[in-house]
Nucleic acid binder design. Structure first.
Length: 314
RNA sequence: CGCGGGGUAGUAGCAAUGGCAGCUCGCCAGGCCCAUAACCUGGAGGUUGCAGGUUCGAAUCCUGCCCCCGCAA
């Protein structure tokens, strides 16, 4: 029995969605149309950045639309005329209006990288790392007009490992989500699954991440700063200011070394490594990058800035 | 033509802003030491990204080019 007669439209934009699209494209749930965001200028020279999903659609030879708005009524009509059976949405970036959601017979399914109702919104993966959670997962959800609010079809948990960054976890969750989809879709399309309403009282929300979130507050604990570091890879990264210049931290390590320094104090460990004290434990700066400069090891940075030792960072 | 920083010894990091090109690290030799990545003494190592210009004199000022990076998006 094949499901390839069902007409599926896939909505998504970044890498996370791209992984899912790739899996679907090779399955019997291959979408016949992909909707993604348009190319946007990026980088120093304003070179156009192509959404990851667009590349995958091209690679898998699936037609795609690049839309920056779904509010145009013509879009809904055009989609309706294609008579799709199902939408699959993963990190598309735009809210789907009600008239669009109403189009497919089997609804619009969203792949959300958290255990809903926890971490609704824009940055669930970062939120789970930032909070130091040990377990997270993906949720398949039937979309309604409110963000990440619809009833849940399926969930799958995974552990968050110690050194896992947002990037690592994102990749795992996208694969998990893709496999879960392929697993669940046959039952869903035969109406054998009932979506369960979320417990809205337990809902929590995450905000879009801004660059300012990456500034280090040294009065937090080393543990918290390290979680921040992993959550904000690759963007915005974490940084501090030294003599008015922004210093990005490229790699770091927690040190349990005992000192009497106050939080933010820069010092040398017995191994001559560059370290900063926090509220609890110290952070060793293995690799740093000053604005306008290449990334260098903590030792090298120290060679050029010997006055660094014993200054206090905010 | 979005804004800005940078390229100086060795695959390292930084000074010197018109007047002898220096510092830290590393490297080499020797010393000290039970010993050392610590300490002491000495040493090697440079066409200052490339090309041109201004000047008695350019790492420094001007022009063009190459390369690296931060911001913005």
């Amino acid at each position: 029995m094949s499901f390839s007669r069902y007409k599926i439209i896939f909505f998504g934009t970044p890498e996370f969605a791209s992984v899912i699209l790739e899996k679907l494209a090779d399955s019997e749930f291959r979408p016949f149309l992909v909707v993604t965001a348009s190319d946007k200028p990026a980088g120093r020279k304003g070179i156009l950045a192509v959404p990851s999903v667009k590349k995958t659609a091209e690679k898998k030879q699936i037609p795609f639309w690049q839309l920056d708005s779904l509010k145009n009524t013509g879009i809904a009509k055009k989609m309706f005329s294609l008579s799709p059976d199902l939408f699959i949405v993963a990190a598309y970036g735009l809210i789907l209006p009600r008239e669009i959601l109403a189009i497919p017979k089997f609804g619009a399914l969203n792949v959300h990288p958290s255990l809903l109702p926890k971490y609704r919104g824009a940055a669930p993966i970062q939120a789970s790392i930032l909070a130091g959670d040990k377990i997270t997962g993906v949720s398949l959800m039937l979309m309604d007009e409110k963000i990440d609010h619809g009833p849940i079809i399926a969930q799958k948990k995974i552990k968050i490992k110690n050194k896992e960054t947002m990037l690592d976890l994102s990749e795992k969750l996208s694969l998990l989500g893709a496999n879960l989809l392929i697993d669940i879709l046959p039952k869903w399309l035969k109406n054998r699954i009932k979506a369960k309403k979320q417990n809205h009282k337990k809902a929590s929300f995450t905000q879009q991440i801004k660059k300012e979130h990456g500034q280090i507050n040294w009065s937090k604990s080393a543990q918290e700063i390290e979680q921040m570091f992993r959550a904000y890879q690759p963007w915005p990264g974490i940084y501090t200011f030294f003599q008015g210049k922004k210093i990005k931290i490229i790699t770091l390590e927690i040190s349990k070394i005992k000192t009497f320094y106050q939080p933010g104090n820069i010092f040398l460990t017995t191994e001559k490594e560059l370290a900063v004290m926090t509220k609890k434990n110290a952070i060793i700066l293995k690799e740093v990058q000053q604005e306008g400069k290449n990334a260098v090891s903590g030792k090298s940075f120290l060679n050029g800035h010997p006055q660094l030792i014993n200054t206090i960072l905010d």
